[in-house]
Every structure is written in C-alpha cells, then in structure tokens.
Computed example of a mutant assay.
Amino acid sequence: MELITIILAGILMGAAAYLMLSKNLIRIIFGTAIFSHGVHLMFLTMGELKRGAVPVLDENVEAYADPLPQALILTAIVIAFALTAIILVLALRIYKELGTNDIEKMKGDPYAD
C-alpha cells in the first residue's frame, strides 16, 4: 500500500513541477496546490500505517496509534489552503491591474507573444 501511495505522490509532484514551470500564473498556482497534496501523501506514507488503539492512556491497551503524522498533515492542509486562497486573490488583483496572467508580459518583456 505504501508503494502505491508513494508512486501517486511522485506523479502529483511531477505534474506540479510541470505546471509550475509554465508562464501562466493560474497554472503556477494550481501547481503549488497540487505539489502540497503530493507532500501530504508523502507525510502520510512516512508516518506508516500503525494499527493500535486510540492514543488515550488505558491499562488494557498494549499498542497505541501514533497521532503525530495525522496532526502534521492536518496542519499542512490548513496552511496550504490559506496560502492558495491568498495567492488566488493576489492573482486576481494582478490580472485586474495589468490585464494579463502571463509572467513574461508582467515583467515587461517586449518580445513576449
């Protein structure tokens, strides 16, 4: 199961790298969002699937599940969502001001198509 998850994370990160290398601002934003999802899958895979009881101290339980990977992933999801929302608002503002979402035209390159 970990192999499938790590392959999926690699595919997501590869697609994200392809999107982030484009000149379109919206593709770059989607690339960062997809990249963060790939990182979340990697965190989940690195945390391993451990079977056990709820991590509450009890005398009858011998093995506890580790809650740290899930807590880290939840925090990372919230941060990635907030970052994506802020970047989308900034992209909308840039588009309203400059009238384009092409990175080369934003820099003022006269040879950009």
Rank of each mutant, 00 (worst) to 15 (best):
E2T: 13
N24R: 07
L19M: 15
Y111V: 06
A76P: 02
L21E: 12
L88I: 12
V78R: 00
V89A: 09
A80S: 13
L83N: 12
G108R: 00
A63L: 14
P110S: 06
E2Y: 14
T32P: 06
L41E: 08
V61N: 11
D109A: 07
L49S: 05
P55H: 02
A76I: 04
G52V: 10
L44S: 07
A71F: 12
K105C: 11
M46V: 13
G47Q: 01
K107D: 03
E62Q: 09
F35K: 03
D109P: 04
K50C: 04
K96E: 15
F43D: 02
T100F: 08
E97T: 04
I73V: 15
A112W: 02
H40C: 14
M42I: 14
K23M: 07
I34D: 04
H40T: 08
G99C: 05
R27T: 09
E104G: 05
T84Q: 12
L90T: 08
K107H: 05
A63R: 09
A82P: 05
I34K: 01
V54D: 15
D58K: 04
A9H: 01
T84F: 11
L8Q: 09
A71N: 08
L49M: 07
M1R: 02
N101Y: 04
A53M: 02
I34V: 12
M20N: 14
M46G: 11
Y95H: 15
D113E: 01
I79C: 02
V56S: 10
R27L: 10
A76H: 08
R93V: 00
N60W: 07
F43K: 00
G14S: 07
N24M: 09
L41S: 09
G47S: 01
A65S: 15
L90S: 12
V39P: 04
P69A: 07
F35Y: 03
K50P: 02
L92N: 14
I79Y: 03
L88Q: 11
H37G: 15
K107Q: 08
L74V: 08
S36H: 06
D109C: 10
K105G: 10
E59R: 04
L19F: 11
L12G: 09
T84M: 14
G47T: 03
A17Y: 09
L90Y: 11
V54L: 15
I6V: 15
P69L: 06
M42G: 13
I86C: 06
D66N: 14
Y18C: 12
G47E: 00
M46Q: 05
E104I: 03
L49P: 03
I34E: 05
K105L: 13
L41A: 09
A91S: 08
I94C: 06
G99Y: 08
I4V: 10
K23Y: 03
N101G: 06
H37K: 09
E59T: 02
L92S: 14
G31D: 01
Y95S: 13
Q70R: 00
G38V: 02
S36Y: 04
I11Y: 02
D58F: 03
